[in-house]
Design a protein around this nucleic acid. Sequence first.
DNA 1: GACCAAGTCA
Length: 483
Amino acid sequence: MLSCQLLPNFFIYATLLRRCTQMKDMMEGKRVHAHIIKSGMQPDIYLGNTLLNMYANTGSVIDTHRVFDKLPQKDVVSWNTMIVGYAKHGYGEEAFRLFHQMQQEGFKPDTVTCTSILKACTGPRALEWGKHIHSHIMKAGYNVDVRIGNALIDMYAKCGSLEAACQVFDVMPERDVISWTAMIVGLAQHGCGEEALQVFEQMRVEGVEPNAVTFVGVLSACSHAGLVEEAYGYFSSMCHQNGISPVGEHYGCMVDLLGRGGHLKEAEDLIKKMPVEADATVWGSLLGACRTHGNVELAECAAENCLQLEPKDAAVYVLLSHIYAAAGMWGSVTKVRNTMKERGIQKEPGRCWIEVENKIHTFVAEDRTHPQTEEIYAELDKLTGQMKEGGYVADTRCVMHDVDEGEREQAICYHSERLAIVYGLISTEPGTPIHIFKNLRVCSDCHTATKIISKIVRREIVARDANRFHHFKDGSCSCGDYW
DNA sequence: GACCAAGTCA
């Protein structure tokens, strides 16, 4: 296209730039940019924003900001594009800084700005930020916009406030398939599988046609609620009643569901029967199930398939080594670790954080860097004693060291979750709920321990791990131990 | 002609 003799006009440049939507398209995007510069044309505001969007989708935030600074003229679309770019790259704080800066420079946020900034609400401050944006939305009268409503449901569900998500959903003047799907997914992520299915039934009653994504939510709700039979029913009605052909994600949910329920053979058979090639996610689900149900042989097969598709996925190596450790196969644990080292793959360290009086406190396992370390450890030891009196026995299967049982128990008792919870207990009023966040999935022993702690201290403990919420109360968890 | 909303595993 570019080699044609006629000088390409803005429309052609914009079309070429819009094709660059992923990181792999960056070189192509830069070539078009270089061509524009060479042609001596001064891009108008539309082309400038298209260029900015190309960098935001394919490049680094630094490159994007450079283009933004050089734009001859900016409008609200330019600011929105920047906010989206930062949010996508995980720089929530930076997105919020831009949100304030645009207003200081006299640009009024529109509905697109608001839906975009809601995406940037992640991490420990997210709920506070989200509420701030929500009040901004109400003042501007944007709350009647269906996209705004949808983004609010998603934000509140992801930030831990399921009640607020339901409230937004309930008062929406108009709902589309995305509103319903966001609500179903939100409920499923909070362990409310049954409620999610009720919402789905209500959606059908109201005559809203579910789509393929809705069924991913429905199947994931079944998975988290342990409803195997129901899932088969929904899977079949999706194909026959709604005419939706299942894709990899639907099979992924089914494999996950069967695996969690211990039907490992059925899960493996389903993978073999899939009409589409199983991706790393599907094999990852099976691998996770093998850990839960302690099947070393199948785990090796699942891990091999995962690594063939995604050789650099640290989580796969970690899971496999945990499975070996649980089976006491220390030689294999060492082998996996050495392979990781040879291939330069590093595990993300487990971290937990809690907000107390507007300050974030972060902990890693066996952390002794907090100023109140002595107090935290003394309280945790006291609590562990009470837990043992109540029948708690440490489940050390996830400890990777080949050391004696005493040391393994020691390692587990000072996991980051427990340090964060205990810090929450000693620094907040009795009876108030404690919210903690974890970058990885919560380990099974900490899950058991947290249930017992919630009963002993009579507090609700809400934990957001890498992919869902756990609400611990009176000795049990909203996930029903199914996560 | 440019920017925005929902998804499984770890």
